[in-house]
């Protein structure tokens, strides 16, 4: 019988498991953590050591406006998603059989459609001679085509379209777990349906709301394709600015400082997200 050298030490099942993490963690250390660290450092040293980049960002100017615009847009998109997704999730959580399948398909199919292509579709809708203008002209609501692009309407519509599934799915997952008998019990105890909803269902769905809100807000902060195609210079968001600074102006120091700022904000929300999903990272996104 094979014995370990140290016979007194009890055999443990988890002895080998830590080693399984070696490869993924080394990989992430080199290709994820190390690049992030370089971004943060570069923000302070390129082109010169110091806080120059941050002074440019937070000094009054266009960069700060982009950051505020990013946060504002992300917040607005999150709020719209929540308001729109909640009733849909409510209906879906009670749907059964074929209806549930159809609803799930209609939510998952866009999720599998390329983001670039979906933004392209919105360009077709919102452009000068696009679907929306045709409709408005046809209905006689306007006399000349409205100029939607570039602008904030397209950005919001496009971003909400992309983020909506990420709000609906955690909400549905949460709502399906809510015991309907609780609602009925509340109604029997004399609460009218509205009160029963407000005092029983809504608080119980809070974990789903938290998960969805954190997820959507965090992802919205980093949006690139939609604002780049539909927003233009008037409605610029952080990722677009960073890409432009690095790729077009070769201003890597400033890009890194902007990216670090974005990183800090997203990380804070990520930590919140981990808390509300009970540390089980990503469970709410399981498709």
């Amino acid at each position: 019988m094979a014995r370990s050298v140290d016979a007194a030490r009890p055999w443990t099942i988890s002895r080998g498991h830590a080693w399984l993490l070696a490869a993924p963690l080394v990989f992430l250390a080199i290709f994820f953590l190390w690049p992030l660290a370089r971004v943060v450092v570069r923000g302070f040293v390129d082109p010169a050591l110091g806080l120059g980049n941050y002074a440019r960002i937070f000094g009054d100017g266009p960069y700060l406006r982009v950051i505020w615009n990013t946060i504002e847009t992300a917040a607005a998109v999150t709020a719209i998603c929540l308001v729109v997704a909640y009733p849909v999730a409510y209906v879906m959580a009670r749907a059964r059989g074929a209806w549930l399948q159809i609803m799930a398909a209609l939510i998952v199919i866009p999720l599998w459609t390329s983001v670039v292509i979906r933004s392209y579709a919105w360009m077709v809708v919102f452009q000068r001679r696009g679907v929306l203008n045709d409709l408005l002209l046809g209905l006689g609501l306007v006399d000349t085509p409205v100029r939607f692009l570039p602008g904030s309407i397209g950005v919001h519509v496009g971003m909400v379209h992309i983020m909506l599934p990420f709000m609906i799915l955690p909400l549905v997952a949460n709502m399906r777990g809510i015991d309907q008998t609780l609602l009925r019990a509340a109604e029997i105890l004399g609460a009218n349906p509205f009160n029963a909803f407000l005092r029983v269902f809504l608080p119980l769905s809070l974990p789903g709301i938290n998960a969805g809100v954190a997820l959507v807000f965090m992802t919205s902060l980093g949006f690139f394709i939609t604002p780049a195609l539909l927003g233009g210079p008037q409605h610029m968001m952080a990722a677009v600015l960073i890409e432009q600074q690095a790729n077009v102006y070769l201003n890597w120091g400033l890009a890194s400082a902007l990216a670090s700022t974005l990183l800090v904000v997203t990380l804070a929300i990520y930590l919140f997200y981990l808390r509300v999903t009970g540390g089980a990272a990503g469970t709410a996104i399981g498709r």
């Binding site: 993490l21 993924p24 963690l25 992430l28 080199i30 290709f31 994820f32 953590l33 190390w34 690049p35 992030l36 660290a37 370089r38 971004v39 570069r42 997820l215 965090m218 992802t219 902060l221 980093g222 949006f223 690139f224 952080a238 990722a239 960073i242 890409e243 690095a246 890597w252 890009a255 890194s256 990216a259 974005l262 990183l263 997203t266 990380l267 990520y270 997200y273 981990l274 540390g279 089980a280 990272a281 990503g282 996104i285």
Partner: peptide
């Protein structure tokens, strides 16, 4: 929990940060 937070993070952080970090690497 910490390990899974690190593994999942890249999916949720803005890709632009990783892009400008990975480029010089």
């Amino acid at each position: 929990a910490a390990a899974s937070a690190v593994v999942v993070a890249p999916m949720l952080l803005p890709h632009v940060i990783m892009a400008i970090g990975l480029y010089p690497v």
